[in-house]
Amino acid sequence: MISVRDLVVTFGHGRDAVQAVRGVSFEVAEGESFGLVGESGSGKSTVLRALSGLNRSWTGRASIGGLDVAKADRRLPHLAQMVFQDPYASLHPRHTVDRALSEPLEIHGTGDVSARVEAALADVGLGPAFRFRYPNQLSGGQRQRVAIARALMLRPKVLLLDEPTSALDVSVQAEILNLLRRLRAQQRLTMILVSHNLAVVAHMCDRLAVMNRGLVVEEMDVATLRREAPREAYTRQLLLASKGYDRAVAGRMVSFD
């Protein structure tokens, strides 16, 4: 379904150029849920933005459902959509929920807008009472539900999730993750989930890739992650760090390049 080959993303020009992603390759099968984990600045979100088409300054090959992402095909919006990290920044402050959800349908001239908006709201567990509210009348979790509904309006096959719960309260995080699991099962979605939270990835994904400094350090399935039996030293350290702060452990941490 998704194929990424030798993806290199460079920011800046000439002497200021920084390679945020230095040759990443992976495949995601149809219906699979794939996790990208790593610490801040490891390039995991950059991979997602290149794959979604938001960032165009990259080299290598990337395709979704056989369509070349670099070519900005008109069918791509129907194939892959994205949910952003911060629900407070991803909804237009002057658009009602109704407008945010009808916009993708109007862009592509899809009919039956009203019924589909109501259905989409119901799908993400929001009643019709929310339909004509502005984002400032919604809580963070409700906003993220609207953002998920918006991403699903065009009935895409692929959902790209950029830390979809890291800006939310812990209790709300679980609700959103369960919602995503349910939607994935109902609509047979292929997902890529970017997160620094290994527990979230273990809960949501079938397979994951660990990234560090723009490279994929190791790919493994979730069972390996649960057994805490990764192959690479970097991944073991990441697992250790994810268990919370420990002075003795922190003292023994090393920098991997």
């Binding site: 938001l54 008109r74 916009e103 918006r150 309006m153």
Partner: peptide, 12 residues
């Protein structure tokens, strides 16, 4: 901002 990015992803 993300909501402009979202609009671009929708094909606007």
């Amino acid at each position: 901002s993300d909501y402009i990015a979202a609009a671009r992803l929708q094909g606007a």
